[in-house]
Design a protein around this nucleic acid. Structure first.
Lengths: 353, 353
DNA sequence: TTGTACGCGTTATCAA
DNA sequence: TTGATAACGCGTACAA
C-alpha cells in the first residue's frame, strides 16, 4: 500500500475503477462513491484521501455504469434533416448553450431528409437511453403513427422548426404562416398586386404554413388567387430556378410583378432565372425570400427576406425539453418565435416611400 | 401466458427488458438474447416467437447495459471550437457520413474556443466511454501536457483541422503552409511585390502555418520581409478590419499592393477597411482570402481564396479514427488534404494574363 | 438448442 | 461515518 504500489497498479491498460481506489485505501467502494459524489456523510480526511488517490490513479468515473443504475444518461438526442442547412448550425448552437449549462451532452444525428433514416436514428437514440430528444423532421414525413407512438413512449420529445402538428407534441418554431403573410402584405402595401409564390414541399409543415400565409395576405386584400402563380420549388436553389422558369414561360402579360419565395436559396435560384430572361430585379419583378441566409445581404440586388432566429429556436426547444426531463414542466406547448423582416433592395420597396 | 397477459404486462411505464420477453414466452433470457442478436444456435420457431413478442411489447434493447458488459459504446466524441464556423458543419457532415455507415453515433461538443471548456468536454467524453474522439482544438492551447497524457490514455484520438503537432498524434488537416505559400506565389507571379499578411492567432497551428507559407513564398522570390506588413488579425471580420486599418495608417508609400488574409472573414473585414480609405480593390490593393466562405463569391469584388475541402477532412479523420478503433490501423499518421485555389476578381490576376 | 451463474462499474438501502 | 448486499440489463462461459 505504498506509493510505489500505486504506480505499479497502473501497469495494465485496464481502466481504473472505484474499487481500485477502495483497495488502495483499504476502504469500501461505497465510501469512495460517497466521497467522489459529495453524497452522504464522509469523514473529511477520508474524502481528501479518496480525491487524492483518484487523481493519482487517473480515475475516470464510468458514466455508463452510472447511467445503468441511475436510469439517467445526461444525454439528449438531436435529429436534424441536414446539418449544413445554414439554419441548423445556429440552432444547434442555441441548443448546445442550454444543454451545456444544464450539463447534458448531445448526440447529433442527421437524417439526410430521409424519413427512414430519421426513424432509425430515433430508435437508436431510444436504445441509447437518451433523456430526451429534439427533432426537426425530414421532408418525407410518412406516417404520423410513428410519431404518435413516439410521444407516448417514455422519452420526452420536443420538435423544433419542422414539427408534426396535431399529435399533442411539444413544438418550438417560427410563426411561419404569420411571417409569410406579413412579408406578402409588405409587397402588397407597396403596390404589388400580381404576386407569385414559390412554395416549399407541401408535405413539410413550413411549406404548407408559408403558403397559407401567402394566401391569407392575398385574400385579406381581395386579390384573386391565380393558381398558375403558385409553383412548388422545394427548399433549394435548383428548385427555385426551375419553378421560376416555369412561371416565366407563361405569356408575358401573365407574369407576376413580385415573387414570394419559400426561402432564400429558392429565391437565389429564381433570381438567376429572372436575370437569364433579361428582366430586372426589382424593376420588372420584385422578389423576397425567407430565412436571411448569410448570402442574402451580398447578392445583387440584396435580398429582402425574413430573419429566422435559429439560435433562439434551438435555445427555447432545449429549455423546454430539459424542463420536461427534470419535471419542471408537464404542459404540452406549441411555442412560436417571432421573426423579423429585413428590407433590402430586391423588393423595390425602399424608393416608393 | 395468453395474448391478454401481454397487453396487461405493459401497464407500468417501466421499460421492457429481455427478461420480460423471456417470462412471457416461458424461456430464458439467454435464448432471447441470442434470438435478438443472431448469435449462436436458436430454434427457428423460438426465434420467430421472440421477434414477434419483442415487437408486441415494444422492446427497445438497452445499449447502456450492453455497453457496460461489452466495453464498447459505438459512440464517438467530436470536439469543435465553434459549430457555426462555416467549416465545421461541412466537416461534421463528412464525419457523420462515415460514422453513420459504420454504425457509430456522435456526441458533439463545442468548446467556444475555450481551452478549459475543451478539456472538460474531453474528460466527460472519456467518462461516457466513447470509443474514440475527434478533436479540433480551441485557439487558446495552453499545455501540451493535457494532450500528451490524453493520447497515452486508452481512447483513440484523431485531431482534425486544428491539430497539436509533435506529440505523436493522428491528424488530418489542410496543407496550410503549402497552400498559403501557393496563393502568395500566385500574387507574386502576377507582379505583386509589396505584400502584407493578416495572420491568425499564432498560438493556433493554422495561424502559424499560413504565416510560414507566406514567408516562404517571399523568401523564394527574394522579396524582403517587412515586419510592419504582418499584423495579427485573428480569424474574424472585426480583427481583419482593425488589422487592415493599422496597415493603412502607415505612410502611403509603405502601403502594400496586395494582401494575403489568414481566412475569408478576415479578408472581408480588410476589404471594408480598404474601401473606407477610398482605395479600390484590386486596382490599388489586391486581396486574397482562405477558406472559400460561402460569401466569397458574392461579395464585391468576388474574393480570390483557397477552398478547403471540409467535408473531406471530416471524412478522412472519421475513417482513420474508426480504423484505429477497430484495430485495422495502428500507425500514427499526419494526413494532409489538398486545397484548391479559387481565382476570382479581388486579386486582379485575371486581366494580367 | 437451451439454461445457469457470474460479471461489467456503479449506487441505493439498510445495517453496523 | 462506514460497509455489505442487491440491483440496473445484458453478454460470456460453461454446463445440460
Amino acid at each position: 500500500m505504498t506509493k510505489k504500489d500505486h504506480t505499479i497498479q497502473r501497469r495494465s491498460n485496464k481502466r481504473i475503477t472505484a474499487r481500485d481506489i477502495a483497495v488502495q485505501l483499504g476502504i469500501s467502494e461505497m465510501t469512495v462513491s460517497r466521497a467522489l459524489n459529495n453524497r452522504g456523510y464522509v469523514d473529511k480526511t477520508t474524502k481528501e484521501k479518496v480525491l487524492e488517490m483518484s487523481k493519482e490513479l487517473g480515475y475516470s468515473p464510468n458514466h455508463i455504469a452510472k447511467s445503468l443504475v441511475l436510469k439517467k444518461t445526461h444525454t439528449i438526442g438531436v435529429v436534424v434533416p441536414e446539418i449544413t442547412h445554414s439554419f441548423f448550425p445556429e440552432a444547434i448552437r442555441g441548443i448546445e448553450e442550454v444543454t451545456f449549462m444544464a450539463q447534458y451532452q448531445l448526440i447529433l444525428t442527421h437524417s439526410a431528409e430521409n424519413a427512414k433514416r430519421e426513424q432509425d436514428a430515433i430508435l437508436t437514440l431510444e436504445s441509447k437511453r437518451v433523456d430526451g430528444i429534439l427533432i426537426s423532421t425530414a421532408q418525407s414525413v410518412e406516417d404520423d403513427m410513428f410519431y404518435r407512438s413516439l410521444i407516448k413512449s417514455s422519452v420526452p420529445i420536443v420538435f423544433f422548426d419542422r414539427c408534426v402538428y396535431g399529435i399533442g407534441a411539444n413544438c418550438v418554431s417560427i410563426d411561419d404562416e404569420e411571417s409569410a403573410k406579413k412579408i406578402t402584405m409588405h409587397l402588397i402595401g407597396h403596390g404589388y398586386k400580381r404576386i407569385a409564390h414559390l412554395s416549399g414541399p407541401l408535405g413539410v409543415s413550413i411549406g404548407q404554413d408559408r403558403l397559407n400565409g401567402f394566401k391569407k395576405a392575398l385574400k385579406e386584400n381581395n386579390i384573386p388567387l391565380d393558381k398558375e402563380l403558385i409553383v412548388e420549388s422545394g427548399f433549394h436553389e435548383k428548385g427555385g430556378y426551375e419553378a421560376m422558369n416555369k412561371i416565366l414561360s407563361l405569356p408575358k402579360k401573365m407574369h407576376p410583378r413580385a415573387v414570394v419565395a419559400v426561402n432564400d436559396p429558392a429565391a437565389f435560384g429564381a433570381m438567376k432565372a429572372i436575370e437569364e430572361h433579361h428582366l430586372s430585379i426589382p424593376k420588372d419583378i420584385a422578389i423576397v425570400g425567407f430565412s436571411d441566409d448569410i448570402r442574402a445581404a451580398l447578392i445583387t440586388p440584396p435580398l429582402t427576406t425574413v430573419r429566422q432566429p435559429a439560435y433562439e429556436v434551438g435555445k427555447r426547444a432545449a429549455e423546454k425539453l430539459i424542463a420536461t426531463i427534470e419535471g419542471k414542466s408537464s404542459s404540452i406547448d406549441e411555442i412560436t418565435i417571432n421573426t423579423e423582416q429585413v428590407i433590402r433592395l430586391s423588393c423595390g420597396c425602399n424608393k416608393k416611400k
